[in-house]
Amino acid sequence: MLRFLGQRAAMGLLTIFVTTIAVTLLIHLVPGDPVEIMYAQSQGTTPEQLEAMRSSLGLDQPIPVQYVHFLGRLLQGDLGVTIRGQQPVAQLLMQRLPNTLALAALAMVIATVIGMPLGFLAAYKRGTLIDGVLMVTAIAGISIPHFWLGLLLLFWLAVDLGILPVAGSGPLNIVLPALTLGLSNAAIVARMTRSAMIDVMSQDFIRTAHAKGLPKGKVLRRHVLRAGLVPVVTVMGLQFAFMMGGAIVVENIFAWNGIGRLALEAIFQRDYPVIQGFILVFATTVVVVMLALDAVYALLDPRIRRS
């Protein structure tokens, strides 16, 4: 199991390493002069000021040197300062990150709590009307754009019924974005759970369990569920990454102060240090969460746990 986790951790480190390179190169892939683009919106900057900025960003040096500098600063937790306002990027992102994590985690819980039991039920009732209704709902669910669903929920629950706040950062404000994200992903979780469980139900060892004369409920709880959880957990990591991606969109609908909202503003303002920092933080978060889920997976599957 340590070997398995070691491999995964190495892969995660590699991913983060590649991200740092990508992030350094990113600014050079921008068509045109990034410094001019960044300052295009502020009036009356002189060529001298531009040159000063260029050297303060280190852009006048060869790329490898820039990268080493970047890496050096990164190890000290320094991601540079924003173009507008000269605030430290790392601090800004770290302030916002908990909001995004809370949103993604709550959404994940909602998706799992709704999706897993329904998927399991559909698998158990395979071929019946219940299964049919559930699966039609699920495929409709994965087809509804989450930004549309978010708007509909917003106007219905917040504007029309007024039971939830429209926007802001109070404790109740997380409900709508989390519900939006959770509901759209519940459909995916349900489909996945169903196919994993059906896969398990057709396995030989389930026939063995029946041949032993175990009651149906016991076969389901002990054999199907325990074995079916393994493949479901393996895709949970991807699900979380998906939630993080979805959060970017949803945060902007509900003005939820996460890193996604920050990133969007930065993209519009061409604030490259923020974008760079965002990408790095996002990728690192995903890597860490995936690694944690790999550990859960390793614990669930004895073939890995005991190797």
Partner: peptide
């Protein structure tokens, strides 16, 4: 593992 959203955004 960067996820599609991040790549598209970048």
């Amino acid at each position: 593992s960067f996820t599609e959203t991040l790549i598209a955004l970048a």
